[in-house]
């Protein structure tokens, strides 16, 4: 980073682009792990669609601030800026849906606001918000079906919502460079969860929404244990052939 007068501005923009780009990159990777294991063939196609949309968003965002492959494959774990929610393992289908519901609702609210602003991400957000609306819709429909389906699916979905609840506070930590009202977004998100979980006959989890660790979370480059293993798998081939083109 050169020491031009706009250094701070550049760093802010880079940080914000990495936060958004890493969210999309990492969640896309997790969804990609489903390939061949979805509960029904139609859902193979749906999950892959979401993964592909997110990967597309990640590539645009990372390319704004560097070489997409260098950023994806050569950064160390501590340099990734994605929220911890995005990296959470797939678990069962209920966990994947709960993760998607929490994340897509957040992303939809965020991109809607970015799209209507005049910041550097407005153009990108305007296109992505349509994709994300569909991801949210998909997650909501499955939440309704799993929550208000069988006793087993209800229990699984409730367990998943509860387990991932502690990663949702981080979504609304202000990110420098994203000119949105995070507090207002959080209220809208909570209202949406109350509505959709209620319709799905699920209980809004009551536990804490952030972990008790002063060091921070994903936005500060602090991740959960499974993340290291995930990026080791993601990066190993690329790193095994330094300088190679693919």
């Amino acid at each position: 980073m050169s020491s031009t007068p706009d250094t701070h501005e550049t760093a802010t923009f880079t940080g914000a682009a990495l936060a958004l780009g890493d969210d999309a990159l990492i969640l896309s990777h997790r969804l990609g792990e489903w390939a061949g294991s979805a509960p029904v063939l139609e859902e193979e196609v749906a999950l892959a669609n979401i993964a592909l949309d997110l990967l597309g968003q990640a590539r645009i965002l990372l390319s704004l601030v560097g070489d997409e492959d260098e950023l994806a494959y050569l950064r160390e774990e501590r340099s990734f800026r994605n929220v911890q929610l995005a990296e959470q393992p797939n678990g069962d289908f209920a966990h994947t849906i709960a993760r998607q519901l929490y994340f897509s609702t957040y992303q939809h609210l965020l991109y809607g606001r970015l799209a209507s602003g005049d910041g550097p991400f407005a153009g990108l957000a305007a296109k992505a918000v349509k994709e994300v609306a569909y991801h949210r819709d998909h997650a909501e429909h499955w939440t309704l079906r799993l929550g208000d389906g069988t006793t087993e699916s209800h229990e699984r979905m409730q367990r998943a919502c509860d387990a991932l609840w502690r990663y949702t506070g981080e979504l609304f930590q202000p990110v420098e460079g994203l000119d949105v009202d995070h507090a207002a977004m959080e209220s809208a998100w909570l209202a949406s969860m109350t509505d959709i979980l209620g319709k799905a006959t699920l209980t809004v989890p009551s536990g804490p929404r952030t972990g008790a660790w002063a060091a921070g979370a994903g936005r500060q480059g602090l991740h959960t244990e499974s993340f290291g293993r995930m990026i080791a798998e993601m990066q190993h081939l690329h790193r095994s052939h330094p300088g190679a083109t693919w």
């Binding site: 990159l25 990777h29 990609g32 792990e33 390939a35 061949g36 193979e44 196609v45 892959a48 669609n49 993964a51 592909l52 990967l55 597309g56 990640a58 590539r59 990372l62 997409e68 492959d69 994806a72 494959y73 798998e233 993601m234 190993h236 081939l237 690329h238 052939h241 190679a244 693919w246």
Partner: peptide
């Protein structure tokens, strides 16, 4: 999950889909 570039990863996901 091990595709060596993001472009290849997108292509492979689309193909498997």
């Amino acid at each position: 999950t091990r595709a060596p570039s993001l472009r290849r990863k997108a292509i492979l996901m689309a193909k498997v889909q």
